[in-house]
Design a protein around this nucleic acid. Structure first.
Lengths: 193, 193
DNA sequence: AATTGGACTAAAAAGGTAAAACGGTCGATT
DNA sequence: AATCGACCGTTTTACCTTTTTAGTCCAATT
């Protein structure tokens, strides 16, 4: 890793903290500069804009989650178990990231185009991963799915729907069990013939 | 139906129009009064508050949807087909109601407690309906589901997740087919052994 | 007694504006 | 190459005034 990249990484780490506490809007470039003990212009030496820093933060975050997911599922051979592990860990990870997202949730960011680009990229990536697992299962003859692409969209969409627990009171004790139940029901036994 | 209820119903119908066009906040009691050709105090003779009118509007709307759903599924005997029809029609109905919800979507209403009460009530009702269908299927021996309650939560939640088409561009031509595909995949053949 | 309109009030929203804060640039410095 | 202070045009904030609004009250009408 080059010197320049190290500095960029430091800025990203510091910015991540500030963004996660105050959101995108209320985080100022001056704050980031002060927190990194640099002049504001120095920040602009490494990044072209506030958006670019935010993008880097999100992408690092997504990269870590992706790595965690990959690490967790790479050992598992059986596609059925692999998919199950993927869903479980992804939903647990979202729980962990809740703080980071909370600060941003109350902001209206979707009119900022770059946010939507990031979101779409991340979603596409996730769909691709799930589709990959499904396809291997189809090759194995373990799954019989007509359209693995549509199926992966359905799975990812359903996970998004299940992110926010609306109906049932959630405490940290029962959330694990609940996720497990839902995964089993939704994808392995919602309606057994 | 008594005279009083007829007048209330007229007010609700007029208010529905205005709410759907301008949302909750930007709809004024004066507007409702003018549109109903009544004095404002007359409106307050029939309803205690703006919230109460809005609640009546939403409840009527929900009631119509509920009736439509019931009408559609009441003839179907097979629980599997019944559930499928329920999901299909509910998702189509949501498409139709899009205009009504759109005006309200851009408002931040969830901090108004009565909105959350309505929402929860509606959600609970929907879960109960789905649970009822599932239970009949279990009695029949057609479904093997350990927790029909959890399963119905999962189905309703997933439907909510699928309400907003995030990933795929949607045009009115393919939306029907897409819903059908997703329903089939999610609940009847996501992963066939 | 049931129903209505209009004047009224307290509270909230909208409008306007001057000052502060902001994202981003530039030229100089190390 | 890397850093920085001073700076610029724009946006946001903070504050005030005016207008609008939800809801009340009461006299008038049916």
């Amino acid at each position: 890793m080059l010197d320049k990249d190290e500095v960029k990484d430091t800025i990203v780490n510091v910015a991540r903290h500030i963004f996660s506490r105050f959101g995108f809007r209320k985080t100022t470039m001056d704050e980031i500069a002060i927190a990194t003990r640099k002049g504001k212009s120095s920040i602009y030496y490494y990044f072209e804009s506030k958006e670019e820093i935010f993008q880097a933060v999100v992408e690092k975050e997504a990269g870590l989650l992706k790595a965690e997911l990959h690490e967790a599922i790479s050992k598992i051979e059986d596609p059925r178990e692999k998919l199950k592990a993927y869903i479980l860990i992804r939903m647990r990870a979202l729980n962990k990231l809740a703080n980071f997202y909370d600060a941003l949730k109350n902001e209206y960011l979707s009119h900022l185009e770059f946010i939507n680009i990031i979101r779409k990229k991340y979603d596409d990536d996730e769909i691709a991963t799930v589709e990959n697992i499904l396809s291997k299962g189809i090759e194995n003859g373990e799954f019989v799915i007509e359209s693995p692409h549509l199926a992966s969209i359905a799975i990812v969409t359903a996970m998004k729907g299940l992110e926010i627990p609306i109906f049932v009171e959630v405490n940290s004790e029962n959330v694990e069990k609940r996720i497990d139940d839902l995964v089993n029901i939704l994808f392995y036994g919602l309606i057994k013939r």
